[in-house]
Amino acid sequence: MNIFRLIGDLSHLLAIIILLRKIWKSRSCAGISGKSQLLFAIVYTSRYLDLLTVYVSMYNTLMKLVFIAASYATCYLIYLKFKATYDHNHDTFRIEFLLVPAVILALLINHDFMALEILWTFSIYLESVAILPQLFMVSKTGEAESITSHYLFALGSYRGLYILNWIYRYAMEDHYDLIAIVAGVVQTVLYCDFFYLYITKVLRGKKLQLPA
């Protein structure tokens, strides 16, 4: 564990808490893409199946359980409890365009052709693009609430911090994993446009509004 990874994980945790809290407090999931949240639930489920086979640490187990539980809770709030507030007219990204390539790529490019390993690889590929329905929704409506922007910033920062962690681990432990690194870079790049808007608008007290 190094500082980049710890802050990355905490940023990830913060993002999840921000989103759950926002939905719960406002009793509404307006502006939130249920499809992205569904993809995240698939990501955590397929990646953390190793909870059943290997024990890494208490920290590792706890965080995995929290991520899985929170992603299911978020989906429950969006698709069941606050279903009436779900903005499905604007959540029109076709997730099969992300799911199918992630499956195919995981079958073709992986470290080991074994079920758990392929599921892990699939989750890494899917995670890198899982935010696209949410970003698509923001671009479609042309705006996002500040709290949604904070959520996106925390979630985007997490993988960016992991890149620093991977550089650190390569230097210190001579360890690197190309699949995770390439997917992590893609994931972070997808947020760049949003990061720019967040820093130039939201942090200056303005609403995140895209130019018409």
Binding site: D9, V56, N60, K64, H111
Partner: peptide
């Protein structure tokens, strides 16, 4: 195997 080490990450 590099992936063995990777699995300690989230």
């Amino acid at each position: 195997h590099s992936f063995r080490v990777q699995k300690d990450e989230l």
